[in-house]
Nucleic acid binder design. Structure first.
Lengths: 128, 128
DNA sequence: AAACATAACAGTAACTATTACTATTTTCTT
DNA sequence: AAGAAAATAGTAATAGTTACTGTTATGTTT
């Protein structure tokens, strides 16, 4: 079976730009709202489909809120801290991914992804 | 304002028992199905309400699947590995929580919870 | 022990995030 | 320029969860 051909799409590139141009870790709906400022009649289904494709092709990352799925334009190695008071996500550097390698070898698992999420209260919420 | 009084409820205790008596990290719906074997006319809303209360009171833990929320009767320190092939969750000991303490102090955050989830393929799925 | 206040309930409707469907348009190759 | 199929807009459907409503169970106070 051949690899699926991916054609150029103005909508997909716009969505990618929207996700990459912010640090707020938007969810699908706010990507939709933001993209509609550029392509007013874009469909919500198109946004979901393209966000999933962008994740599959490794161009963006998927995070998880309480219930909602969120996206991150930064694909570099980092972890996440979420403030439960203001709801903001912080990118943090906490864990060296290499520790998972020895873990996988020890247990005979193959690790494909990992996700470390801390939650709590951030400095600015603690101060105010 | 007074602390909210929590009354005894047969349903809640049964739900707790169901969650504590398994290692499969059930989701709300399967807790519902299992509890109905004991209380046949229990309502799905009652299951959700009580699962949330049990989480709030620290008696069970909340995990996150791709979309579904899952629950864990084991509140001790451990992390999670999920096999993307068979869907099973494994409890693993990977990270010493004390590393978060120094992180919190350094950044002036207050950490209230953390969640480390690894995903990949487990040994038995790799073998078969 | 009877009366009271309200937490918890069962059953159902509503809501939110996401996916599926369909007819049309766009992209790319020949 | 024509043809194949990837992608689209718009809408309907689905899944997980919460909200609502009238009734029942629990615990407290007379």
């Amino acid at each position: 079976m051949e690899p699926i051909k991916q054609r150029y799409s103005h909508q997909r590139e716009t969505i990618l730009q929207v996700v990459q141009s912010t640090l707020v870790h938007p969810n699908a709906d706010s990507v939709y709202k933001e993209t509609r400022k550029i392509i007013p009649n874009i469909s919500l289904g198109t946004v979901y489909r393209n966000l999933n494709q962008l994740v599959e092709s490794g161009r963006i990352l998927k995070l998880k809120d309480e219930a909602m799925v969120r996206y991150d334009g930064n694909t570099g190695q980092h972890d996440h801290f979420r403030c439960s008071k203001c709801g903001k996500w912080y990118d943090v550097e906490l864990i060296d991914q290499s520790i998972f390698k020895s873990f996988a070898e020890k247990h005979d698992f193959r690790i494909e992804s990992f996700n470390l999420e801390l939650a709590g209260t951030c400095k600015s919420c603690l101060d105010s």
